[in-house]
Amino acid sequence: MKITLFIPCFIDACFPKAGASAVEILERLGHTIDYPKELTCCGQPAFNSGYWEESRTTAIKVLERLKDTEVVVIVSGSCGAMIKNFYPELFAGTEYEEAARSLSAKVYEFSDFLVTKLGVGDLGAQFPHKVTFHDGCHGLRELGIKQQPRKLLAHVRGLELVEMGEAESCCGFGGTFSAKFPMISTAMGENKYGSALETGAEYIVSNDSSCLMHIQGLLDRQGKPLRTIHLAEVLNHRQLPHS
């Protein structure tokens, strides 16, 4: 299958390993990756801030470039939800409405794509660590992704998944919310990592780098030993010399 990979702006800039891992996993499964490098962002920051016109400027480019693709995979639940759920709303009543709907139908979040569309579970990964999983809100509540990442993690050799009490609680990032109301955002993040710490896990794994960016930023500032890592990196991890 020819898979078009949409790499969100912050994964491109700050978390390229998550994107690269997704590429390597999908290629190992025998698929061809198309990376539209003229696309940089889905337009969510402007959309969530109320600037729908500016969001459309960015989103139209995405619609046009992804028009003739077979299937689109996104390594982020949040940007996935933006394209899948919010583009149709953003373009409702415009000439792009149809395009937004047809793109929506072929967009998948990464873990959902592996499990639901490809039907795979075991990717041959090894990750001998105790981890806990953070459900990003957009993946969980907009896209209904809950079991998919867990199914994939269940096959990772050496990995022990310990669920935290607050797996489904928001990490407090919320895009521009984190800058507009930093005190609330930070308090939410503290609750989140507090719950993760209680599990005794070494890593917080998630399918959303934006949440992990927020949690890691807090952990680093507060000097906590816990680390964060994207699901794709865990699934791509093996005991090979170059890993």
Partner: peptide
Amino acid sequence: PVRAWTRSRELPKVAPQTFREWW
């Protein structure tokens, strides 16, 4: 300029090699 973030959190770093550079 990003004090609203750095007041309570560390900033993420632009990676030595971005995804598009890696590609």
